[in-house]
Design a protein around this nucleic acid. Sequence first.
DNA 1: ATGTATGTTGTTAGCGCTCACAATTGTCAG
DNA 2: CTGACAATTGTGAGCGCTAACAACATACAT
Lengths: 340, 340
Amino acid sequence: MSKSSNGRLPRLEDVAELAGVSHQTVSRVINNHPNVSKATREKVEAAIAELGYRRNTAARSLVTRRSQTIGVLGSELAQYGPANTLLGVEQAARDAGYFVSIAALRSVSRDAIFDALRHFTDQSVDGIAVLVPHSETLRILEEFNPGVPVVAVGSLGDDAVSGAMVDQKRGAELAVGHLIELGHRRIAHVAGPSDWIDGSLRAEGWRAALDEAGLPHDLLLEGDWSAGSGYEFGRRLAAERTATALFVGNDQMALGILRAFNEAGVRVPDDVSVVGFDDQPESGYFTPPLTTVRQDFEELGRRCMDIMLKEIEAGAAVSSTIVTPELVRRASTASPVTEH
Amino acid sequence: MSKSSNGRLPRLEDVAELAGVSHQTVSRVINNHPNVSKATREKVEAAIAELGYRRNTAARSLVTRRSQTIGVLGSELAQYGPANTLLGVEQAARDAGYFVSIAALRSVSRDAIFDALRHFTDQSVDGIAVLVPHSETLRILEEFNPGVPVVAVGSLGDDAVSGAMVDQKRGAELAVGHLIELGHRRIAHVAGPSDWIDGSLRAEGWRAALDEAGLPHDLLLEGDWSAGSGYEFGRRLAAERTATALFVGNDQMALGILRAFNEAGVRVPDDVSVVGFDDQPESGYFTPPLTTVRQDFEELGRRCMDIMLKEIEAGAAVSSTIVTPELVRRASTASPVTEH
DNA sequence: ATGTATGTTGTTAGCGCTCACAATTGTCAG
DNA sequence: CTGACAATTGTGAGCGCTAACAACATACAT
């Protein structure tokens, strides 16, 4: 960081003096105001470069009441999905000249969310992205109006809050449709927790796809997203052998199921086909490689920022955006072996 | 957010008026200055509560030249390790009353790092945690002095920069020691890239442990941390069969190797033992469950903040901290089958 | 009473910036 | 040459806070 001779960082006034103009003119230059003559602008820019001047964010915030910061509130920020969404948000935000402040929830509760929101309002963020794909999230957000645009990622939003989500139902239908196409008739679902938006929407999609094909949807298990819960269900399913195919709520649970099936001698895909959800980078190297539904989390994050920036900078109304998932076919699915 | 009757957020002056004191007294109360009488303090606190007053961060920053924000600069923030380290940093920082600003590097280069550091100095952060475990990182950090404490996570630091790291060499020795104890004599290493600190230190630990046991260390392959590169090496190793045991640089590459071995009919651990590094939540559900070295990334993040806060608040000198990893034994390792 | 130390409260200035407005310059029709 | 208007530049105030200092009250020793 360059300092002026007196040991202080240069400020607007210093630039103005060097360029022989008023501080206000310098302010106009750095804010790209139109009515500045070309000659003046160049003089000022030269002075800025010479001094290595950088605008003081705090002073600017104080008067504009804008912090150029957006807050990201997340509950599982280390997980593949949220972490990559965060990356998308960060990229779009920084490209637009915003800082990104984060707050990780240690638990999903009203108080924890309020705490984090207050943390952000204390910082006077200009917008908040909420990565808490819980069914309660929207309701809680309605109670606490932070006075700035909020985007609830993973939901469609409502009257007060914008939304950005991947079309979970569509994803589930892709997965189940693929299994039906292969000839499966008994397709079970190992779901995520039903109080998670993604969990319930994927289950809904599974049900809808089976309904449409006139197939039964009586085989539903509810896990907790973890490989461990997948493993438990895998053991049970290996013993029961009621379904010829499994649509699993995420890749981690699918991994646990593959592990349990391998232990129990159930062959995938020969005996049972398995489809996951998310397409983590590792899923193509499971044993066997996992057919799954890819979600573009970074794109989701960028879309979230698109919406938010339009609200912040153009005063746009609350809106929402939907990202379409896609099926990735790998070795864990095949046609069922017809019994004679 | 509560507003005063005139529609503006309450400020110090409003609280002072309501409490019947000067704004400076209110300032003393919210900053916990000692010389305030109990009666006054209570009056002020009541007024603060009544108005829902919250201090304006920008105004405070402007005069204190402190932003109460720490910046986290990361290169692979969505990966298991860095993501959890970030969580540890966030937790410690927020508990200490700091905001956490992030900047994700799209590529590891001098320019990208400078960009991100400038982003943080623009924000006048009070400290910077650098999660870029690249050998070049320290050198680059020396060139750009941000004027605030910096902790290079994943390294020991140097004269100018503090460090916080997991004892990678120790971890490697634990892994290799375990294999030696089981009776293995030919132990190969599938390393991470040698220009990553972790990659080179783990390779060093592998070499040191073999040296000490008087065993050869000629079987070294260098991957790129991805499951895909593990898979490629796995195919090669399955064909060559030179080693009876493998120490793999991380769990993801180990997953790729397990996949390749499974395809090639190489049984783990019967034919070859495999040890990974990291202990991701999924590693216990690989086929077979992976013996690996656990790193406590959240702890690493917290320790990083300990150091930084001591530098920021107590003016402590540059220092460093080391977190000890631990071996997790699972089914992917066993004694070699003795040949007759 | 006087002086000194201590605790408590108030007053003033200013951090670096942007906004609203004032002042100055240039341009061109009449 | 003058007046009206637009383009450009400058001036002053103030955002909300803390630091430095001043002022006042209280206590106690002299």
